[in-house]
Computed example of a mutant assay.
Amino acid sequence: MLNLKKNLYIAGAFALCALAACSSDNPSSAGSTTMPNATAENSSSSEEVASSSSINSSEPKQDIFFATAATSVKKIAQGEVAIYGQEYGAEASCSAGKYASKKSYLARIHITEDNTMERTLSLGNFGSSCDSLLEAFKESCTSGLVNLVADANCSRNGNLKVFCYASNPTNDFDAIVDGFTEQSDAVCSTIADGVDSTEYDIPKSDPDSSIKANSGRVFIIEPNTTNLEVSDEERVTLDSLAAAFPQKIEYDEIDGMPLIFNMDAEYKFTTEGKKFILNEDDNTCTGSIYQEEFGVTRHIAKYGDWRSTNTTTLLVPDIGIVYLVNDGTGSAKEVFQAECEATNGSYYEYIEMAFGCAVKNFTGIPFETIVSEQETMSRNNFNILPEFTPRN
């Protein structure tokens, strides 16, 4: 794990070479690209305006997207840096490992027309290293007036997506890119540490006579019965199960800081899951099977990891099956709720993009059947995600 000081310097690349390194009163212009809108703001008075009024008037954002093709690409450890010279931006990405434990890093920088520096950081499966990188990112953002995405916290697995913006300290775009590349390479050179590449094959099985064919289902297994009767007593139990998985927070015993160990509509497994991966062209579904706890998780992404849907299925013996969804696409709710109600389940919405459903196990579906249905449901799940154009 990188120590905090090194992390601060690394994440400080998003603050443009720790500010001082890349910005002098007389930056070298030899072989460099100068941003036209930055030149007029090079005096101290202009910089003061840029770091206050222009940023205060900017609208908070969540991400950076580039509309043009990359003008050049640089290789870094485990990945690359794509440079978008026409838009004064760059994107660094790297990954290591396979399956549900795949570790990923994605960072972007962008100089806006009003000479504001925007930057994002996205981490996947970074574990405890995520916390120090987040703190370093926040620290780098204190160099100017910034806006940090609300509720930007590392998940239990070390997932993170955060955005901030501040005044641009230099008009030398090449120097900005060089610093960004160097620091991204430093993070990516360590990304393979502790990566789990264990593979697990989804068991194939003949269609289970106790359930209907789920060729059209995305989330919830359809029972092979026309009798979906649920008693009042059972409904109370199902309602309680559906609502039993809100965001959970623990507090550090030393400093009392809140520690989130699972988000809305998630379940914290205590055993080690067996990893699996399912591919279909540019679509990818990764997940884990928790045999001892009767649970399965899926992470559905389309054309990379731009948007994704996380699902959890829990078999509760002698009671029912719980389905949980964290929807990063904004397209799953309608389908999920319709499938829940069609199975006479109890639907519960935690927040706009996190919801649960508890269904009575009418025909006694075993855990092995739930696992074997994951491939069909994963492939169906691809169809509800928004379309994206794959990068060349």
Rank of each mutant, 00 (worst) to 15 (best):
A152N: 06
D174I: 09
D151A: 13
S184P: 02
E135V: 10
N159E: 03
G158R: 12
D131E: 15
V162F: 08
A152M: 08
S132F: 07
A186C: 01
C164V: 11
T170C: 02
L148N: 07
S155D: 12
C154N: 10
S167K: 00
P169H: 02
Q183C: 09
A136W: 00
E182R: 09
S184V: 03
T142F: 08
D185T: 08
N125P: 00
R156Q: 09
N168W: 00
D174G: 15
A166C: 10
N153Y: 12
K138S: 10
E135K: 11
V146Y: 09
L145P: 03
D131K: 15
K161V: 13
V187T: 12
N147S: 11
N125F: 00
G127K: 05
D174P: 05
A175W: 05
N157A: 15
N125W: 00
D174W: 03
G179T: 10
S143L: 05
G124T: 09
D151H: 13
A152K: 10
F137E: 09
C188H: 02
Q183F: 12
A175Y: 06
T142Q: 05
F180W: 09
R156S: 12
C154V: 15
F163Q: 04
L123I: 11
L134D: 05
I176Q: 10
C164S: 13
A166I: 13
F137G: 08
C130L: 11
V146C: 12
V162D: 07
K138A: 07
S155I: 12
N159Q: 07
D178R: 08
